[in-house]
Amino acid sequence: MSQTDAAQKLAYALRFGDTALVLSHRLSEWCGKGPALEEDMALANTALDLLGQARHWLTYAGELEAQGRDEDALAYHRNDREFFNLLLVEQPNGNYADSMVRQFYFDAWHALALRRLLASNDAQMAAIAEKALKEVSYHLRRSSDLVVRLGDGSERSHAMMQAAADALWAYTGEMFMGDAVDADAAAQGYGFDPASLRAPWLDYVREVFDEATLTLPNPDAWMHQGGKQGRHGEALSYLLGEMQVLQRSYPGAQW
């Protein structure tokens, strides 16, 4: 592997790891504040699954980088410009409808992406994807089910879900926009072309929204991008400031 190849693959692994880590963080902000006890438990469970996945990805990224950085060095000692998560998952929690729609948009993509990674010619990536897919299939069942029940629920719940679906829509496009890193992943066979997930994702979201009596926002609307390249919104830096406070305040300490 040439040096640029290694750097591309590292960035690719970090995108998955950072995305899982940041969403796990957002979900754990709900701790003890969910709308029902069962939701508190389910949120913690999803946060825990994503955290486990993040640890696998970051550990592997550290191996690819070969600079002796482990999962914690990567999680706690990079700034927001060096994080490559999707913009969608860093969006603040908002109300519970916002958090559930964010989860649904992401889960629907995540399940498709992981399924594609099962065929990765990188054995580590395929193994991480295989384990994660079991968890994410469950996340997707749960978030789809909630979208249907709340969309086709009361007038108020319908309105809140539609508002969340509309507000977050502009952050979904990034999941399907490729760049040089994605092109390398597809060409080398360890990853895939993200554009190829767009049609199946739209089909799935449309199907669930139909059942939920929600209106699918315009697929050709303007979409934000930049997270995968380290250009984030203002919220991420605060999130990392909180996450990293102890590691940054006590350099070198073991915990």
């Binding site: 029902a36 519970y96 029940r149 709340l150 086709d152 629920g153 009361s154 108020r156 719940s157 809140m160």
Partner: peptide, 9 residues
């Protein structure tokens, strides 16, 4: 609203 929505469904 969440609990009310689930009940309505």
């Amino acid at each position: 609203w969440f609990r009310e929505g689930l009940n309505a469904h």
